[in-house]
Simulated assay, not measured.
Amino acid sequence: MTVNNVNNGNQKPQLENQRLNQQQAQNQTAAQSTAKQAQAAAAPRQDSVSLTQSAQQLSQVQKKSTDAPVNQEKVDKLKKAIQNGEYRVNPDVLAQKISTLEAQIFGIKD
């Protein structure tokens, strides 16, 4: 014996309840997404900067150089010698001093 229409058409309210529940879930998800976006927009962004060790050392060297006393008499004497073409550079001494400075900056031992 076959029974048809057991619920006498009561399946419609169940389908409507399922659709309503789905719509409510979608609305909640949309509301949560909007709230998160509003929080992200309201929260201040924090930028950060990080310097490499070499950059930090260079910054320290620059600070030391601005704090160092200047012998203005010697500077003027060198300027005059350069302008007159009398200043001579010893390339070997210059290369050694550059090498020493780089070793100090980058922490390399000779």
Rank of each mutant, 00 (worst) to 15 (best):
M1G: 04
T2M: 13
T2S: 10
N4T: 12
N5C: 06
V6Y: 15
N7S: 15
N8G: 05
G9Q: 05
G9M: 06
G9L: 10
G9S: 05
N10V: 06
K12M: 07
K12S: 11
P13I: 01
Q14L: 15
Q14G: 07
L15Y: 07
Q18A: 14
Q18K: 10
R19E: 13
L20E: 11
N21A: 14
Q22W: 11
Q22C: 07
Q24K: 06
Q24L: 09
Q24C: 01
Q24I: 04
Q28N: 05
Q28T: 03
Q28A: 11
A31W: 00
A31K: 01
A31V: 12
Q32A: 11
S33A: 07
T34E: 04
T34Q: 04
T34P: 00
T34F: 00
A35Q: 13
Q37G: 07
A38S: 09
A38E: 10
Q39V: 04
Q39K: 02
A41D: 12
A41I: 04
A43D: 14
R45H: 04
R45A: 04
R45I: 03
Q46K: 11
Q46D: 12
S48C: 08
S48A: 10
S48W: 14
V49E: 04
S50L: 07
S50Q: 13
S50K: 02
L51V: 05
L51K: 05
T52M: 06
T52W: 01
Q53E: 08
Q53D: 14
Q53M: 12
S54D: 09
A55G: 03
A55F: 02
Q56N: 13
Q57N: 14
Q57D: 10
Q57K: 10
L58M: 09
S59E: 08
Q60G: 03
V61H: 08
V61E: 15
K63V: 08
K63G: 14
S65I: 11
S65D: 14
S65P: 00
S65Q: 15
D67E: 15
D67Q: 14
D67H: 12
P69T: 01
V70A: 02
N71D: 14
Q72C: 11
Q72P: 03
Q72K: 15
E73F: 06
E73K: 03
V75M: 05
V75D: 02
D76Q: 06
K77E: 15
L78G: 00
K79E: 13
I82S: 04
I82T: 03
N84H: 03
N84T: 13
G85Y: 02
G85D: 00
R88W: 00
R88H: 03
V89N: 03
N90D: 15
P91F: 01
D92E: 15
V93M: 07
V93W: 09
L94V: 13
L94K: 02
A95S: 10
A95V: 12
Q96M: 06
K97V: 12
K97T: 09
K97W: 06
K97S: 08
K97I: 09
T100Q: 13
T100N: 13
L101W: 04
L101R: 01
L101D: 11
L101Q: 11
E102H: 07
A103D: 12
A103T: 11
Q104H: 07
I105V: 11
I105E: 01
I105S: 00
I105D: 00
F106H: 09
F106C: 02
G107H: 01
I108Q: 06
K109R: 12
K109H: 13
D110I: 12
